[in-house]
Nucleic acid binder design. Structure first.
Length: 347
DNA sequence: AACACGGGGTT
DNA sequence: AACCCAGTGTT
């Protein structure tokens, strides 16, 4: 048996029971694939059910409002996925009459669908012979064939896509793609792969040369920026002053609180002297001495403090608005903001 | 080619 | 703390 046949045989015996594998509906598969981008199956599954239930068809999705989509997406991260989904749903509704495309060349044009997702949807929904290359596939191929070209260099990406195409079983691409990804996720894991029970270890270069620890190779260029967020919570217990974020920064179009960002960590007495504080009015005071919350993103570390102010400002800045405390659950809030607000208002 | 974009699990 | 997850879009 060749590699593909071995992986498919393994898959048939060991696959997990995942809901999106029970359909060939391109729309449902699209939902699952976008949700699972850079996201573990266990984390994404509840969101998959949530979206599939709320929007059973792409027509239902296209009718949604962005606020509603982001609220459903809350907590999953990479929120541009949610915003792009709405744009794509609307385009599919208008230009494809609500019939979700199944061909790679159509799918790749859509917002939020790149090479991986186009290959996944086209193969799973219409058995088009396109090979998926995700993190799992990079790992399996790098190890099995002993390829040490970095998976995140342009050259490496081309190379692995080519290998994936060569290995693909053109007669059953859907099954092959599921198999190689499941194999990478369950057996050929990043750390401590289960080589002892691996059906293809005798053909695996990394196993034979004891190199699984070093493959795949990845270029790392992590520069993490530190940012200091001073949030103001102002509320009389019934209403609370909120802010809607704009584009061009993290958490685009989501909701947070009035924010003063500083270049370093500062204490409340220093904060009071800042010119930005003037918008909150004269003779203001803090009602708490907040802890520093560290919130880690891919390229940023946020050091967040939530300051409770004692009175409403006289006028509002752009993006600010009052909302009823009971309406907070309808707003899409970043995780760290949500946790604090939930705690503060004792949800 | 490099970077931005979240949140969470594993080691 | 480092690494990675069923990646994509922008510059």
């Amino acid at each position: 048996m060749d590699l593909s046949a071995e992986l498919i045989a393994w898959y048939n015996d060991n696959k997990r029971d995942l809901p999106w594998r029970k359909t060939t509906d391109a729309y449902i598969i699209w939902l699952s694939e976008i949700i699972l981008q850079q996201t573990r199956v266990e984390q994404g599954t509840p969101y998959f059910y949530r979206f599939a239930e709320k929007y059973p068809t792409v027509t239902d999705f296209a009718a949604a409002h962005e606020d509603e989509v982001l609220r459903l997406w809350q907590g999953l991260g990479y929120y541009s996925r949610g915003r792009n989904m709405l744009k794509t749903a609307q385009l599919v509704q208008q230009q494809y009459s609500g019939v979700f495309p199944v061909k790679y060349n159509e799918l790749i044009k859509l917002k939020g669908i790149g090479e991986y997702t186009a290959a996944a949807i086209s193969s799973f929904s219409s058995n088009e012979a396109k090979a998926v290359v995700d993190g799992n596939v990079y790992r399996v191929l790098a190890r099995y064939f002993g390829v040490d070209e970095p998976i995140n260099s342009p050259k490496g990406k081309k190379m692995f896509q080519q290998i994936a195409n060569d290995v693909l079983d053109k007669a059953r691409p859907a099954l092959h793609n599921q198999a190689i990804m499941e194999f990478g996720a369950m057996l050929c894991k990043p750390k401590k792969p289960a080589c002892g029970i691996c059906p293809v270890r005798l053909g695996c270069v990394a196993f034979k040369t004891n190199a699984t620890t070093y493959l795949p190779v990845k270029i790392k260029t992590v520069k993490v920026r530190k940012r200091y967020f001073n949030y103001m919570l102002i509320s009389d217990g019934k209403e609370v002053l909120m802010n809607k974020r704009g584009e061009g920064d993290i958490w685009a179009n989501m909701y947070d609180l009035p924010l003063i960002e500083t270049t370093e960590l500062i204490e409340q007495n220093e904060l009071l002297k800042l010119p930005q504080m003037k918008v909150f009015g004269e003779n203001i005071a803090f009602k708490n001495n907040p802890a520093i919350i560290k919130h880690v993103l891919t390229h940023q570390q946020l050091f967040i403090r939530f300051h409770v102010l004692d009175k409403f400002p006289d006028k509002l800045q752009s993006g600010w608005f009052y909302t009823d405390v009971n309406n907070l659950e309808n707003l899409a809030l970043p995780k760290a903001i949500f946790i604090f607000i939930k705690y503060f208002f004792n949800f």
